[in-house]
Design a protein around this nucleic acid. Structure first.
Length: 278
DNA sequence: AACGGCTCCAACCGCATTATC
DNA sequence: CGATAATGCGGTTGGAGCCGT
């Protein structure tokens, strides 16, 4: 006897989510929290399965998501992590604040993989592709793809020489710590940090401050001083107001201009991570 | 302008893992 | 401790949009 499907698919909606559905789901989660994904669609009045709701929340609606292009630093991080962890996208994502496993997976499959091939590296093993395959690539069907990518990846290629040298060192340095679960805790606080910056840049921090009477409601330092329940409650209230305040049709891409700020933040984070390992 | 091929990414599917009874 | 339910995860797909012809 096989497993039962996760949900009764009869009468359930599939495909892209509408803004109305997004609002329903977001409002429900911010009001009630997530107790049981299976019950979420029923209680939120959505004709979706719980799995779909979970995915939508995790990959798109979560307020702490960083959207927009991946920075080169992030690319490098992904490559490093992938060389160590393989296709364990969720593990990789846990080291990249604001990025989802799905997003990283897509990014890997659509961009990084090609770039590694272009650089003569096997995306699976991260080792140089054998000469035979390289020749084939150079003369075969993938030549066009490489050629078309060549221009846009030139800088990447040049930098990769330095990157390759640094790669082994960094890989060694990060070897042990990647396996440590404490990293998750650090990353979670980074998520909150990023979100705080996000709010600050959007000037929505002011109303958060008004609400919580603190300018660091989302900092890890502050959250250490309050119970998990209180923290959760404060976050929910603030997030709820944030969502309410954002225009329904405001595209999330509007946040992309913040990438630069977050890039610097992550640079320093990455460097400090490596430094603390030493 | 129309068409076809390609890219990218949101969403789905099914298996694995974890939690609960 | 086994059975079942719930959740998590990674592979895959569908389709919208882009681009070249």
């Amino acid at each position: 006897m096989g497993r039962q499907p996760c949900c009764d698919k009869v009468g359930l909606k599939r495909g892209p989510w509408t803004i109305e559905e997004d609002h329903k789901l977001m409002n429900f989660i911010l009001n009630k929290g997530i107790q049981c994904w299976r019950m979420v669609p029923k209680l939120a009045g959505l004709l979706r399965c719980g799995k779909s709701c979970r995915l939508r929340w995790i990959n798109y609606l979560r307020p702490d998501l960083k959207r927009g292009c991946f920075t080169e630093m992030e690319d490098n991080q992904i490559i490093q992590l992938h060389s160590r962890l393989g296709n364990r996208w969720s593990k990789i994502a846990s080291h990249l604040p604001g990025r989802t496993d799905n997003e990283i997976k897509n990014h890997w499959n659509t961009r990084i993989k090609k770039r590694l091939k272009l650089l003569g590296l096997d995306p699976v093993t991260h080792k140089p592709i054998e000469q035979k395959e390289t020749v084939k690539d150079a003369s075969g069907g993938e030549l066009d793809e490489c050629t078309s990518l060549k221009e846009q990846d030139e800088s990447w290629e040049v930098k990769s020489q330095d990157h390759d040298e640094a790669k082994s060192d960094l890989a060694q340095v990060k070897d042990q710590k990647l396996e440590q679960d404490e990293m998750k805790i650090l990353d979670e606080s980074d998520l909150l940090k990023n979100y705080e910056i996000l709010c600050g840049s959007l000037d929505v921090g002011s109303w958060i401050n008004q609400e919580t009477n603190t300018s660091s409601s989302y900092s890890s330092q502050e959250s250490n001083n309050i119970s998990a329940g209180e923290s959760h409650s404060i976050q929910e209230n603030s997030l709820r107001q944030w969502v309410d305040s954002v225009d329904s049709f405001l595209p999330w891409d509007s946040f992309s201009h913040l990438d630069e700020d977050l890039f610097f933040l992550e640079n320093s984070q990455w460097i400090s991570e490596v430094a603390t390992t030493d």
